[in-house]
Design a protein around this nucleic acid. Sequence first.
DNA 1: TCAATATACTACTAATCCAGTAGGTTTTCA
DNA 2: TGAAAACCTACTGGATTAGTAGTATATTGA
Lengths: 143, 143
Amino acid sequence: MKISTKGRYSLRMMIDLAEHYEEGFVSLKDISKRQDISKKYLEQIVPFLNRSQLLTANKGHLGGYRLSRDPSKITVREILESAEGTLTPVSCMDCEPNNCPRLEGCLTLPIYKGLYDVVTGYLDSITLAKIIENEEEAFTYYI
Amino acid sequence: MKISTKGRYSLRMMIDLAEHYEEGFVSLKDISKRQDISKKYLEQIVPFLNRSQLLTANKGHLGGYRLSRDPSKITVREILESAEGTLTPVSCMDCEPNNCPRLEGCLTLPIYKGLYDVVTGYLDSITLAKIIENEEEAFTYYI
DNA sequence: TCAATATACTACTAATCCAGTAGGTTTTCA
DNA sequence: TGAAAACCTACTGGATTAGTAGTATATTGA
């Protein structure tokens, strides 16, 4: 149930970009320094975030990356889903339709579906803007 | 963010034991047949469930396993935590105190803590009894 | 126009973890 | 005493993770 390094680094990179959203394009070099993440590894993360259209890139001198949308319009769910591929707790939920041979009468699937809803619901509620505001209790979830 | 096979099989084994709770001790052989899980692999899962005192075992002829408590007193959280070790989304949360070098000023930790609370809160609300009742909407979570 | 600075792309690798198999020991009871 | 069960330890092939390395391509300021 761990979030991979790819997911965690993606989130940190996106938070960094949110913190410097007003400054135009930010280079991987700068992000790498501030976040203490190898630039080479960041390069490998970027394609995923790009594919999900979370970033705008500029090549060449003074190039870099920028959030494609306002930080208040990007959620942690989008970022982690982009990096992790999916947030489903079991792989049978990744196929549509679900082709698990035990599907019929499976007593565990409803549990995993419920878990998925809970997780994505929570992560959907957190935007980059909310994170950099860093308010107390912003992430407490009343149930 | 996937649940491992160990976790999934543990849950299925525990559900099986809940379904046969009134029948006394159930052998791994029977569970293996019904659940279509290798008996050898189940043998490797049992020690974890045992350590968490979720099972009572009987050796020898007509031996087997039994839930140590009523199915209404065992939650999915206990089972998965037992099999997975922990349900924390990031490993820095496993140490007490958290010794992450970036701890101070880490903007992501509150997110992961919130996620942990949401996940464990949900899984705590589901008991084995609830699962085998298999009622519609038992796992919908109103937020 | 060229050099510096970026992104973009592909390939490789060491280490770890996962899922499962194998074989043997011990305990219990009919 | 033998069958059936739990219990224990070790091994293994494959997949995944977390990187590193090297090169190609694009942009722009001097």
